[in-house]
Design a protein around this nucleic acid. Structure first.
Lengths: 336, 336
DNA sequence: TTGAAAGCGCTAACAA
DNA sequence: TTGTTAGCGCTTTCAA
C-alpha cells in the first residue's frame, strides 16, 4: 500500500503538498498539483482513511438504529436520511437492534469510542436516562420514538392526535364498538395511540370497554393472534378494528378472514403507519400516513446540526401526518 | 477526553501497562491491573478506537450490502451473519445499495480506504470484473447472487434446480400452461430460475410458449403489473403461475383477485424465497425456501477466513433448498 | 507556494 | 512484570 510519503517522493514534493492536493488543492500550483495527481495515479494511491480519521477525530459516518430490519416502514425514512447525508458527504450505516437494549448500547458505545459521529435511533429500547446521558455528550437524534419528557433532539408525529382522528373517522362511519389492537404498552408511542383511542371515545361520551383492547406484538403474527382471541371471546361484539400499526391490522384481517368474516363488509379495519404493503394488500388498508421521507430528512438535518456543534432551538419537532382512507374501512354509513 | 496517558499517570504506571490491561491483561500483576482499572473508572476512560484502528490497521467491522432495505428476505440472513460475527467480536453494518452499482462502489471503496475489513454483498450490481478485482485484493463474499464463472467466494443455492423442481411440482398437479414471472433478466439468478422453468418443460417434451413469460421488477408491484398484462392478453390461457420471487407472486395473486379470479381454485400460484409474508398472506404461498440463516452463517464464516488470510478451498458453496407447499398451489390433480 | 516538523492515541518490540 | 520508545499515515501550524 503506497502512503502519502511514496506519492510525495514520486512527485518530488513534500507530503504537505500532497495532503493539500487532497484537501481541495488550495495554495498549490496547477503544475505541482498535476505532478502529484500523476504520482497518485501511477502508484494507485488511496489515502488511508483510518489515518485521516485518527488525525481529524471525525469519521463522517453516522449510524441509524432500527428495531427491525425487514420492516419496510424504515426503508422510506432511510431514503430521506441518505438524501441529506449524501450532499453533506456523510455515509450512513444501518444497525439492527432487534429492539434489544444491549444491542443498542453497543451502538452507543461507538460514539464514545469515536467510531461514528452520530446516531439516529428509531429503537430507543434503552432506559431514558441512559439515552439522555449519551445525547448530552454526543450527537443523537431520536426519531418516531420518544419519552415522556423530551430532553433530547426528537422528530415525530402527534401519535395521540392521529390515533384519535382515526378512531373518530370510524365513529363517524357509525361504529360504536371498536376493537383496539394496542401494541406493546411499554413503548410510549403505542400508549399515546391508545390514549387517542380513549380520547375519541370519551369526547363522544362513549363508555370504554377494556375487553375491546388487546396488547399485542406489533407484527402480522401479533395482530393475527390478538384478533383470534377477540373473535373467540364469547359475547365480545365489535364492528370495527383499529390497530396501532399496519402489520397488526394486516394480521387482524387475516384472522377475520380465516373465521369467515369479510373486511370491510362485516368488520371495518384501520391501521397506522402506511407501510408499503398496506396499499398492495387486499383489501387496501385505511391507515395513518407518517411523513416518512420527511422524518428522515429532518432527523439527519438535526443530527448534522448537532455534529456541527449547534444546539437545537427546541428539542421536539412534530411533523404532520395524514389519514389515508382505503378499502378496509368500508363506506361511510354514519353521521358526522 | 482522557487518553491512555492520563490513565497511566493516574495509576502511576506506564502507558504500555495500561494498554496491556486492555489487551487482556497478560503479564500484568493483579494489583497493578486493579490500579489501572480504578484509574480508568475514575477518569471514565474509553480507548479511542480510531487510534486503535489506525495503529492495528484493522477495524473489526464488516459490511453487508443488500439491494433493498425493507425486504424481509435479508433480515433472516442477517441474523445468521450477526450470530457468527458476534462470537468473533466483529460488528456488522448494513448498507443499502438500492441495487445501484455506484452505491455499491462507494462501499467497496471503503475496503481500499480501510474503513471496513470485509464485505458480504447480496447486491452484485457492479460489473463482474470490478467485483472480482476487489475480491482478489480484499475479503469479499458474494451471497445469493453470483456470476457465470465464479472466481470469488460465493454462497448460494442451486436456483435452476429449485425452479425446475417447483415447475415440475406444478406439472405434476396437472398444469400444462404455466405462466412464468421471470424477474430482471440482467440478474443471473433470475436467468437461472428461468432456465429451470424451461428445463422442466423440455424434459416433459412440452412446447415453450414465450408469451407465457413476463420479465418484471422483482416486487409486489412488478408482479401485479405483469399479471395484469398476462390476464389482459387476448387468447393467453394458463392455469398456473410460477413467479421467480415471492413478492412477485403476491403481486400476481392481488392482480388475479382484482380480476375476479380465485387462487388456487382458478389459478395456482407459486413463488420463490419464502419471505416472511408468504406464510402470513392469504392464501399462504407455495414457495422455495432458501436456507436463510445458514446462508448468513456460511457467508460470514467464509469472510472471516478471508480476513484471516486463508484462501477458500473452493469458491462456490451451494446450500440445500426446500420446496414449501402451501395453499396457493391448490390440490394435487394430475399424475406423477 | 512550499516544506519541515509536531503530534493525534495507541500497540508492540525491545530492554531492563 | 514493567517501562521506554518507535512509529502507524495523516493534517496542520509555522516558517521560509
Amino acid at each position: 500500500m503506497p502512503t502519502i510519503r511514496d506519492v510525495a517522493h514520486e512527485a518530488g514534493v513534500s507530503i504537505a503538498t500532497v495532503s493539500r492536493v487532497f484537501q481541495g488543492g488550495a495554495n498549490v500550483l496547477p503544475e505541482t498539483r498535476e505532478r502529484v495527481l500523476q504520482a497518485v495515479e501511477h502508484l494507485n494511491y488511496h489515502p488511508n482513511s483510518l489515518a485521516q480519521q485518527f488525525r481529524t477525530q471525525e469519521t463522517r459516518r453516522v449510524m441509524v438504529i432500527i428495531p427491525e430490519l425487514g420492516n419496510s416502514f424504515y426503508a422510506d425514512i432511510f431514503t430521506g436520511i441518505v438524501s441529506v447525508a449524501k450532499v453533506n458527504n456523510y455515509t450512513v450505516f444501518i444497525y439492527d437492534s432487534h429492539g434489544q437494549a444491549s444491542s443498542e448500547a453497543h451502538c452507543f458505545d461507538m460514539l464514545s469510542s469515536k467510531n461514528i459521529d452520530g446516531i439516529i435511533t428509531f429503537s430507543a429500547s434503552m432506559p431514558q436516562e441512559e439515552i439522555e446521558r449519551y445525547a448530552s455528550q454526543y450527537p443523537v437524534v431520536v426519531a418516531c420514538r420518544y419519552f415522556d419528557e423530551i430532553r433530547l433532539p426528537n422528530v415525530t408525529i402527534d401519535n395521540a392526535k392521529a390515533s384519535k382522528d382515526m378512531v373518530n373517522y370510524m365513529l363517524n362511519l357509525g361504529h360504536r364498538r371498536i376493537c383496539y389492537l394496542a401494541g406493546p404498552s411499554d413503548i410510549l408511542l403505542y400508549r399515546d395511540r391508545m390514549q387517542g383511542y380513549l380520547a375519541a371515545l370519551s369526547e363522544r361520551g362513549l363508555a370504554f370497554d377494556p375487553r375491546l383492547v388487546f396488547n399485542c406484538d406489533p407484527s402480522i403474527q401479533g395482530g393475527y393472534d390478538a384478533m383470534n382471541s377477540a373473535i373467540n371471546s364469547a359475547d365480545l361484539k365489535f364492528s370495527a378494528v383499529v390497530a396501532s400499526g399496519d402489520t397488526m391490522a394486516i394480521g387482524a384481517i387475516r384472522a377475520l378472514r380465516s373465521q369467515g368474516l369479510k373486511v370491510p363488509k362485516d368488520i371495518a379495519v384501520a391501521g397506522f403507519d402506511d407501510i408499503e404493503l398496506s396499499a398492495l394488500f387486499s383489501p387496501t388498508l385505511t391507515t395513518v400516513r407518517q411523513p416518512k421521507q420527511q422524518i428522515g430528512v429532518r432527523s439527519m438535518e438535526k443530527l448534522l446540526d448537532l455534529i456541527a456543534g449547534k444546539k437545537p432551538a427546541q428539542y421536539r419537532e412534530v411533523l404532520p401526518y395524514e389519514l389515508v382512507i382505503r378499502e378496509s374501512s368500508g363506506n361511510f354509513v354514519g353521521t358526522l
